[in-house]
Simulated assay, not measured.
Amino acid sequence: MLDDLDRRILRHLQRDPALSVPELADRLGQSAPRLTRRLEKLQSGGILRGQRAVIDWRALGYEVEVSLRVTLDKTQTRAFDDFLEGARGIPEVLEIQTFLGRVDVRLSVIARDIAHYQHIYRRKILTLPHIADIEALMHVARIKSDEVLPI
Rank of each mutant, 00 (worst) to 15 (best):
1 M>A: 15
5 L>R: 15
6 D>N: 15
7 R>I: 14
8 R>H: 12
8 R>T: 01
8 R>P: 00
9 I>S: 01
10 L>I: 14
13 L>G: 05
13 L>R: 02
14 Q>G: 08
14 Q>T: 11
14 Q>A: 12
15 R>M: 13
20 S>I: 01
23 E>A: 15
25 A>W: 00
27 R>S: 10
27 R>A: 15
28 L>P: 12
29 G>L: 10
30 Q>R: 13
32 A>Y: 01
32 A>H: 02
33 P>H: 11
34 R>H: 13
34 R>L: 12
36 T>R: 10
37 R>M: 09
38 R>A: 09
39 L>C: 09
40 E>R: 15
44 S>T: 15
46 G>S: 05
49 R>Y: 07
49 R>P: 04
49 R>N: 12
49 R>F: 01
50 G>M: 08
51 Q>Y: 14
53 A>H: 09
53 A>R: 14
54 V>Y: 03
54 V>L: 13
55 I>G: 05
57 W>Y: 15
58 R>W: 07
58 R>C: 04
59 A>F: 00
61 G>W: 01
61 G>F: 05
63 E>T: 07
64 V>M: 08
65 E>Q: 13
66 V>T: 10
67 S>H: 13
69 R>K: 11
73 D>E: 06
73 D>S: 03
76 Q>W: 08
78 R>M: 10
79 A>M: 08
85 E>N: 12
86 G>F: 01
86 G>R: 14
87 A>Y: 06
92 E>C: 05
92 E>R: 06
94 L>R: 15
97 Q>L: 13
99 F>W: 12
100 L>D: 05
100 L>Q: 03
103 V>E: 10
105 V>D: 06
107 L>F: 03
108 S>Q: 09
110 I>H: 05
111 A>R: 03
111 A>E: 01
112 R>G: 05
113 D>K: 03
114 I>F: 12
117 Y>T: 02
117 Y>P: 03
117 Y>G: 02
118 Q>R: 07
120 I>N: 00
121 Y>V: 00
123 R>C: 03
124 K>E: 14
124 K>A: 13
125 I>E: 03
125 I>G: 04
127 T>P: 04
130 H>D: 07
130 H>S: 07
132 A>V: 01
132 A>D: 09
132 A>W: 06
133 D>P: 04
133 D>Q: 13
135 E>L: 05
137 L>M: 09
142 R>D: 02
142 R>T: 13
142 R>H: 10
142 R>G: 00
145 S>Y: 10
145 S>P: 00
146 D>W: 06
148 V>I: 12
151 I>C: 03
